[in-house]
């Protein structure tokens, strides 16, 4: 046996391992998942209102004009971060509906009192069933739903200022 070769062996094994790991890294492995519901109608649902806002039902989404549906919760930090952007979207003429997931009415009311309420209707989804109806993997997520109630676009995570024109364009596209 060649001694030099043996001493080289660990390096070669490690190189192989490294190539494998680097290869694995190249693959997308995001934990967030794009909704499989984009392009499909929202399943029928009817949620009660919360914080003085009227409730939200599937029929409200098929109202003839595109709307934004924002899935949020009072316990979610990015939801607070995106509040000014939601307000900006509303000021630019977008219609927003909210779905509060796994929350209590008091906390939702307190959250909206502190961060502002840009929503026309808010559905209270204490079981979190709407996450699956929209194909969401977490909160916050924002969906563009067209006039026939079909989901056209999904925005994952918080809306940052640079996303506002993007969402307005998606709304325009869904018209």
């Amino acid at each position: 046996m060649n001694r030099r070769l043996i001493l080289l062996l660990p390096l070669l094994l490690f190189a192989g391992l490294l190539i494998f790991m680097a290869g694995n890294l190249g693959k997308p492995q995001e934990a967030v998942v794009r909704s499989h519901m984009v392009g499909k109608p929202v399943a029928d649902f009817a949620l009660e209102g919360v914080a003085g806002a009227p409730g939200l039902a599937a029929s409200d989404l098929a109202s003839g004009k595109p709307v934004l549906v924002n899935i949020f919760a009072s316990w979610c930090l990015p939801c607070a971060v995106e509040a000014p952007q939601l307000q900006a979207l509303k000021d630019k003429g977008a219609t927003l509906h909210g779905i509060a997931v796994r929350d209590t009415p008091e906390k939702v009311a307190a959250f909206l009192a502190r961060h502002g309420n840009p929503f026309q209707r808010i559905g209270n989804d204490d079981g979190g069933r709407m996450l699956i109806a929209f194909g969401a993997s977490g909160v916050p997520e924002t969906y563009v739903v067209d006039g026939e109630g079909i989901i056209r676009h999904q925005h994952l995570g918080e809306i940052r200022p640079e996303h506002v024109p993007e969402l307005l364009a998606e709304l325009e596209k869904a018209r």
Partner: peptide
Amino acid sequence: AKALEGTGHPMDKTAAKG
């Protein structure tokens, strides 16, 4: 996530890294 992807639904993962 992968299983859902594998079922042929028009679902793509966010590809942050190629």
